[in-house]
Design a protein around this nucleic acid. Structure first.
Lengths: 203, 203
DNA sequence: TTGACATGTTATCAGTCGATTACTACAGTT
DNA sequence: AACTGTAGTAATCGACTGATAACATGTCAA
């Protein structure tokens, strides 16, 4: 019959708590879209109370904006890390780096989701800025031609589509799913499948 | 001081009204995403009352599912119409056909949006089925190789991204927007720009 | 130790939304 | 003209959600 057992989240510095919430929010926003996600779901996923999430980030919209910016920061980071090496292999290394972002839950879906919200004044601005950063990185740091950059991003968007549709679950059963996955990941289909949830999994 | 002037929508056969609502719903869902759209907004856009939309379609989810299926029907239709002609020009004709779908409001964004909802049991099934129909059409009727089909769909998804982000508004001002639009629509940038809303337009 | 700030919660509200119910009016058939 | 099914609306409700207010507890410098 102890009396304490405060159901309060263990104390943490606000900066660390913010990062923890941002990671949880990325996963939830990625799984359920921006509008479809409640601040309460984010709070539960992060192990704190719903009002605290709102207090730390101001509004749900500001939270999502930070999630988007953090995601693009991270993406540029892994791309930059894939630059060193033979110039010919650069595209492949960066493609692999993108695919490996699948392990960071919600990151790719958040990108896809943000690109659908260009009509939202605040979110749209941030989403366009993120896209612009990626494009300029490809053109300037990675030294891609416009056509190479276009092809690279187009492939990324197709991968986002595959992820969003949960197509990996149909691999082997459905001709189209099998073929498109083989075409997108000639060497890594099995690995990708293990990283992705089935259609009915919560993720 | 006339007394009549019933604010009721003019009588119409239910089948016609359904089609009218589906068209309006495509525009609204496309502009504001599935979760972000209210049945009342759809009703206003179609000029009927909100309960009537619900009664005709059962639920908002069923309405959206019909919107998705109608969109894929239409897309297959314009692709099929682009088949006849020289085999070498087939890819270009179909690409043009896809771009021309921009005039049918919300259609491309609805596709993009549906691919993000693979985790929703009902919607996910329909979205995967639509993707599968497109892929099989490309492989069988259009006789694309897997690699050609992959490239075609990837480009389509990039176009959806450009549309969703409202990137056309930055053409000429922003290097990345200018370059990616030039790369995606080498011959039709101006035409595409006239078809698309600016970032702050309601569409 | 104490006080002051930082970290976190519970309680609650006001607005929104999908859906249901009950009702009205038009149109075609006999 | 009366009957009947179809097309449509107004009113309303319960559930949900983002945000606010008020309060509690831990931490750390002086």
């Amino acid at each position: 019959m102890t009396v304490e057992s405060v159901p309060t989240a263990p104390r943490m510095k606000a900066a660390d708590r913010r990062e923890l919430i941002l990671e949880a929010a990325t996963a939830v926003f990625g799984a359920k879209t921006y509008v479809g996600t409640t601040t309460d779901e984010v709070a539960r996923a992060a192990g704190v109370s719903q009002p605290y999430v709102v207090r730390l980030f101001g509004t749900k919209e500001k939270l999502f904006i930070e999630v988007i910016e953090r995601t693009y920061d991270r993406m540029i980071g892994v791309f930059r890390a894939a630059l060193p090496g033979t110039p010919e292999g650069r595209g492949d290394r960066m493609g692999t780096a993108y695919t490996e972002l699948l392990v960071e839950r919600g990151m790719l879906p958040v990108v896809a989701n943000s690109t659908a919200l260009g009509g939202e004044p605040q979110i749209g601005r941030v989403a366009r800025a993120g896209f612009s950063r990626i494009w300029r990185f490809l053109r300037e740091e990675a030294e891609f031609s416009p056509e190479q950059a276009r092809e690279f991003i187009a492939t990324g968007m197709l991968i986002n589509t595959i992820v969003g549709l949960r197509l990996t679950g149909d691999y082997g059963d459905e001709v189209s799913a099998t073929e498109v996955l083989d075409a997108c990941f000639p060497d890594a289909v099995q690995q990708v499948r293990t990283l992705l949830p089935a259609a009915d999994e919560p993720w």
